[in-house]
Design a protein around this nucleic acid. Structure first.
Length: 311
DNA sequence: AAGGTGGCCAACCGCAGAGAT
DNA sequence: CATCTCTGCGGTTGGCCACCT
C-alpha cells in the first residue's frame, strides 16, 4: 500500500491508521460532516478534508457492505453500465452499501474481463465481431457440428449457419462503424437502420447473442422499468438517453472466476457453441436470405475454407 | 527458494459543477 | 457577472499478496 508521507503543508497522506480512523468516526458521530474542510481540525486529524471524506465514504461509513459481490449485484452493474456507462456513483446508488470506488474497481479488475471472455465488448456491450477473433473459432464450430450423431443434412445445414453467421458478424461490424462516433453506448433501438426491411429489428444482440443456444441469452423485451432479480426496480427515465431497459439481462450469465464453475457453467469457448440442430429452420434464416447470391457465396466459401485450414 | 507477474484495492489526483461571495 | 471555494466524480497509481515459473 501507499507509503505514508507528510506534505509540504504538513498534512499527512497515504494509508490511514486505526487511530486516525477512530478519530474520524468519533468526530462524525458527534458533529456529523457538515464541512469536510473543517472536520480534520475538529477531529484532531493531520489530514485534508478530501482525504477524510474519501476515507469515510469508501471505508468507514457504517452502512458499507463488505464482502464479495453477489452474482445479482454483478448483473445489475453490467446492466447499468450498458445503459449509462462509467457513472460509478449513479450505479452505486442502486447497490446499497456499495461504493462507487468499489464498483469501479470491480469493473476494471473483473467484470470487463468476464465480458470479454463471453465475447462481449465491455465498452460497447456489443459482441466482439472482428473476423480476427471470429475466424479462429470457426474450425471448432464446424468440427463441433459435424461430430456426434448429426445427419449429413444437419451438418450441411450447420455449415450454412456458419456462413451466415460470418456474414452477420461482418454486417455487425459495418453497422458499428456506421454508428461510430454517435454514442459510445447506443440504445438497441437506434441499431436497427433498415426498418421495414428484412433487417428490421436486427441488432448484434438479438440476432447473435440472443440466438437460442448461441450465448443462451434470452431475447430482450423492451419496457420502461427494469426489475432486477434482487427485486430492485429501476426506472428508465433515471437512466438518461439510452432509456430502454431490457427485462432480461442483455448479457450472458457471468462465468465465475473459480475453476469449479468454469468447468460446469458457460465456458469462454462456448461463444461459438452450435445451435440446436434438431430444430430447423436454421438459426440465421431471414437475414441470411438477404445476402444469398453467387458472388457472396463464393466469397464466404473462401472465408470458410481459410478458416478450416487454420490450426 | 527466489524472482516475476498479475489481481486486487485503498488512496490520491485532477477536473467539473454548484453554490457562495 | 466574475471569481473563489468546496464537493463530488471518474481516472489512475502503487503497494500487498498469491500464484506461477
Amino acid at each position: 500500500m501507499m507509503e505514508t508521507t507528510i506534505e509540504e503543508n504538513g498534512l499527512k497522506k497515504g494509508p490511514w491508521t486505526p487511530e486516525e480512523d477512530g478519530k474520524l468516526v468519533d468526530c462524525i458521530q458527534k458533529y456529523g460532516h457538515g464541512s469536510w474542510k473543517e472536520l480534520p481540525k475538529l477531529a484532531g486529524l493531520n489530514r485534508c478534508g478530501k482525504s477524510c471524506r474519501l476515507r469515510w465514504t469508501n471505508y468507514l461509513r457504517p452502512d458499507i457492505k463488505r464482502g464479495a459481490f453477489t452474482d445479482d449485484e454483478e448483473r445489475v452493474i453490467i446492466d447499468l453500465h450498458a445503459k449509462i456507462g462509467n457513472k460509478w456513483s449513479a450505479i452505486a446508488s442502486y447497490l446499497p452499501g456499495r461504493t462507487d470506488n468499489e464498483i469501479k474497481n470491480l469493473w476494471n479488475t473483473r467484470l470487463k474481463k468476464k465480458l470479454l471472455r463471453n465475447g462481449i465488448d465491455p465498452d460497447t456491450h456489443m459482441p466482439t465481431t472482428h473476423l480476427n477473433t471470429f475466424l479462429p473459432g470457426l474450425p471448432q464450430f464446424l468440427s463441433c457440428n459435424s461430430s456426434g450423431n448429426h445427419t449429413w443434412e444437419n451438418v450441411v445445414r450447420s455449415q450454412v449457419d456458419a456462413a451466415r453467421l460470418a456474414k452477420i458478424l461482418l454486417i455487425g461490424n459495418i453497422l458499428q462503424l456506421l454508428n461510430a462516433g454517435t454514442s459510445p453506448s447506443l440504445p438497441m433501438e437506434t441499431f436497427s437502420p433498415m426498418r421495414g426491411s428484412q433487417l428490421e429489428g436486427f441488432t448484434p444482440y438479438n440476432t447473435l447473442a440472443c440466438q437460442p443456444g448461441f450465448l443462451d441469452v434470452p431475447r430482450p423485451m423492451l419496457q420502461n422499468t427494469m426489475e432486477t432479480s434482487s427485486g430492485m426496480e429501476i426506472n428508465s427515465s433515471e437512466l438518461g438517453e439510452s432509456s430502454m431497459i431490457y427485462t432480461d439481462y442483455a448479457v450472458p450469465d457471468l462465468v465465475s472466476a473459480s475453476p469449479e464453475r468454469l468447468s460446469t457453467d458457460r465456458e469462454p469457448n462456448n461463444f461459438l457453441r452450435p445451435t440446436d440442430f434438431s430444430n430447423p429452420p436454421t438459426t440465421f434464416d431471414g437475414l441470411g436470405d438477404l445476402m444469398d447470391d453467387e458472388a457472396s457465396n463464393y466469397f464466404w466459401k473462401q472465408v470458410l475454407d481459410q478458416a478450416s485450414m487454420s490450426p
